[in-house]
Design a protein around this nucleic acid. Sequence first.
DNA 1: TTCTTCATGTAATTAGTTACATGATTGA
DNA 2: TCAATCATGTAACTAATTACATGAAGAA
Lengths: 214, 214
Amino acid sequence: MSRTRSLTTTSYAILGLLSVRSWTTYELAQQMSRSLGRIWPRAESKVYEEPRKLAEHGLAQATGERVGRRPRTRYAITPKGRLALRAWLAEPGVGPVLESEQLLQVFFAHQGSREDTLATLAATRAWAVGQNADNIAVGRAYLAGEGEFQTTVAQNMLVGAFLTEWYRVVAQWSDWAAQIVEQWPDDPSQAQPDLEALAQVVLRAQWSEQPDGP
Amino acid sequence: MSRTRSLTTTSYAILGLLSVRSWTTYELAQQMSRSLGRIWPRAESKVYEEPRKLAEHGLAQATGERVGRRPRTRYAITPKGRLALRAWLAEPGVGPVLESEQLLQVFFAHQGSREDTLATLAATRAWAVGQNADNIAVGRAYLAGEGEFQTTVAQNMLVGAFLTEWYRVVAQWSDWAAQIVEQWPDDPSQAQPDLEALAQVVLRAQWSEQPDGP
DNA sequence: TTCTTCATGTAATTAGTTACATGATTGA
DNA sequence: TCAATCATGTAACTAATTACATGAAGAA
């Protein structure tokens, strides 16, 4: 089961970009850190390395260019590459993976001070606000017709919408949690669970069993 | 900058668990895959390896036990370990990291078929519903007084609430996106952006600039 | 008594990160 | 003409994953 793929999801991310147009490695790196990185974050050096792998597999073609005396490489997708991309799009992808050091710190808040936790929550909120601002900027660029992906706005907006909602719940949750933590005593390990809030959480968790919800 | 920590966040995750009580490695692995794994997913083998590192640093103490002829190891936190944990809780953690192959597939949906995308969205929704069910089960166990963390319910419920909201937006977004994708022509690359929906997205994205929002 | 599942690890491999290096370009 | 920043990579390292191996306990 889960036959080891010769390409990683990161490979397909790059291949997907190549399906839109040809890119130099630097441009790919930019794009990853600016927009794609929000849903598939990878280090720059990876982005420099992956396209080479694609070329080895015949999914992309590398062309040497020259800027002054410096060489640079431009990659373009091949027909075989398009087929591989199509095949990947038909596969079941893995669900969202969430990783949060801050959430971990909240989980173990009983071992720290109340101020620690409030600071963490403030940082979380600030992060969400910042990300949202970036997201809006990217969106505006699309609408203004500047972005690369003019041909793919219909798809990109779905992802943009996802991010909007994501940043919003993070910020809302931070506010809500901070309100509760404010009530804690100085030593959080003595904090009593807020029963009213707890009941609310339980209620909200029922969404998937209810006939619906806005 | 970003002075290389000798411990990783994964180390602190384990250390945090040890701050509650002592655990055998198997129990730690269970806990990671059941509950902590939702905010800090790691492979089992890591969980077997990390506590050893903690012991080397003097933050945990290993005790050899025996089950029949098989050895097993139980770990307990040391005073030095508690200090290290406290110090980490006071540090600024990194914001949530999101990684989603499915979202990537939606982003590049223009290269696949409409059915591919609908299938991906259905999978995303199913994932969220499944995770939510698990989350509820974990919550119920706490409330029934079964869980480990009776002393830390006040903290855990904050994280539980976060997850509830997270799964809910994922499911809601999947439904919303599927409705839009239904309208696409057979070849998604010909899809026109749904302008009404786009305007809505832009509006909702303004939350951080508005005075508020529910 | 055998099979299955629970329990406890190790080994091999790889994906990914951090750090470094250096040429090109621009503007002060 | 110098400094800063943009552009283009490589090298070294490490965190993490996949795969494997096997003992113990309980069910059939």
